[in-house]
Amino acid sequence: MSAEPLLKVRGLGVTFRTGDRVTVASQDVNFELKAGQVLAVVGESGSGKSVSAMALTRLLPPEPNCVIQGEVLLNGRDLLKLSEAELTQVRGREIAYIFQDPGTSLNPVYSIAYQIGEAIRLHRPEVTDVSAEVIHSLEAVHIKEPARVAQQYPHELSGGMQQRVMIAMALACNPKILVADEPTTALDVTIQKEIMDLLSRLRVERGMSIILITHNFGIVAHFADLVQVMRSGHIVEQGPAEQVMNQPQHPYTKGLIACIPRLGQRRRRLTTLKDELKAS
């Protein structure tokens, strides 16, 4: 792990302006990610974790409504200084995203084959046989009948299958970094396990880095190398996953870990964040 980090983020901050109101969504975010590493960003809704991830490739409203500060260095190149046209080459090609709700991320009026094909045609013009590449990408996410699924429309697929298609689409362009924004929150636990297993397998096969955004510490444990805990726009704690999970320093981190019900440990009441923060 002596390699130069793939992604270096320094002093990243996002500020929204609406009328005369200024909202600081995230502030002073710093981290480094090496190739093949998984960074988990944990926090409640509204803590700024998604906004920070979107800011990496400026997937946010233009200035002056939204101001992004800091540096995002991908292999030494500052993404925030690139033009819109150059950024389009980075989005999808080098940093790809999958979102929480696969149902609304897919276009309902186009077939799966068309939508994955679109990404391939845009980012990999050298590919001549696009439909074979589509089938190949569906096989990569362990879809059993890729040829049949490719001809289907999003509404014909279950939530778990839709999320697989989103992952297939994101991976079709061989990105270096995959940003997974709550990829399993909308799915039930058995499907959640399948998707997380799939992501860890793909990470090993492709040596891809993953930024996993979640509010649930439960799925971080066996998956992440690094953990970053965010609260109201700030990073309150970060470090190697084992250290943060086993010896959390900040009361907010302790609270987030404590409030998850665990199998076989029945308690009269669940610990809430308020209890945990009051106790400290």
């Binding site: 409640e44 039930d188 636990v189 058995t190 509010h215 409030c259 019900p261 009441r269 669940l270």
Partner: peptide, 30 residues
């Protein structure tokens, strides 16, 4: 997860106060 814990506690408190009966539907065994 943090709000989940609060809502579950609330449901259990209300059951104790009002003697309610619940049919609880879920997918997370924990």
């Amino acid at each position: 997860v943090s709000v989940q814990a609060e809502v579950i506690n609330l449901l259990q408190d209300l059951q104790a106060q009002l003697g309610l009966t619940y049919l609880f539907i879920g997918h997370d065994l924990a």
